[in-house]
Amino acid sequence: MMAMTEPAGLRTADDDLLPPADWAPRRTLAPGTRAAWIFALLALVLVSGRAWAAPLIDARALDAWTTVFVAICVQALPFLVFGVALSAAITAFVPPTFWRRALPARPAAAVPVAGALGAVLPGCECASVPVAGGLMARGVAPAAALTFLLAAPAVNPVVLVATAVAFPGAPEMVAGRFAASLLVAVLAGWAWALFGKGEWLRVPSPPHGAGEGRWEAFRQAMRHDIMHAGGFLVVGGAAAATINVAVPAAWVDGVAGVPWVPVLVLALLAVLMSICSEADAFVAASLTQFSPTARLAFLVVGPMVDLKLIALQTGFFGRRFAIRFVPLTLVLAVMASSLVGGVLL
């Protein structure tokens, strides 16, 4: 799928996310040397862990950590698999011309339509960046494509069902997520239509046809998305398990008592954890110490701004785009979730 939307000759940071290759000087160590260094580092970690950490770690705490870690991964996996399957099907089977016909020509009018399309069509956030790039390459207004980029992973049906499962008996969380995310996507699109400058954005060159069968494209898209999203899901599960088990309840209560701070803390956590939007509701549900509004901020920020998306957007649209678009989205997302959370939750 992405072979179809992928511009040639563009170094995207997609394959070796975090950090993208051009953030650091390229390593030129021979493989043998590198392996030796890695093993030396590993030995150092093991020895220091044995010396300082082992006496402090309760075996029951380790058990609890592992249980919570496995639980979050197991819980999120079905939603990840089915969400990725749907998004791969759309990428492989929906013809590119559909988008041009569905979206109005005027950017200001196209933005809400793109938001609505994002709400209907499931798309993994890793997939939505290349799809949005493909839309721009096919002549869709950048503002509308960016709205789709933000809305597709955040408010699609799979994500909303996953949120409802993760927060049983709390439909207001689903409603809040939908409203706040759509608001952010549309506002960001309009802001870009009003103030965005063409030179900030590197529009990817039109795709070159790839001679793939559709089923083959589907299979490859699905495998690709699971590999990316699954790895980050594991990172998120480990981080959530650590917060659950290791962070003293008093700290969290202290943080949770100050107005605004919990919202900002969870927004920052969402950026760092980079969990797939199909899975993040389960992590948010496990952060029981935090207020509902803070958890809503986690759910709204996560699919729109996180480390892997920053890397992807920089790779696809250029650095000048990312340093403007990422802060814009982040500020809008925090404000919208505080607002919606204050009204609904």
């Binding site: 563009l10 995207t12 394959d15 898209a221 990172v235």
Partner: peptide, 14 residues
Amino acid sequence: HGHDHSRGPRVAWL
């Protein structure tokens, strides 16, 4: 150059 979808990211090993 670009990004070849046959190679998975290292993060997938997790």
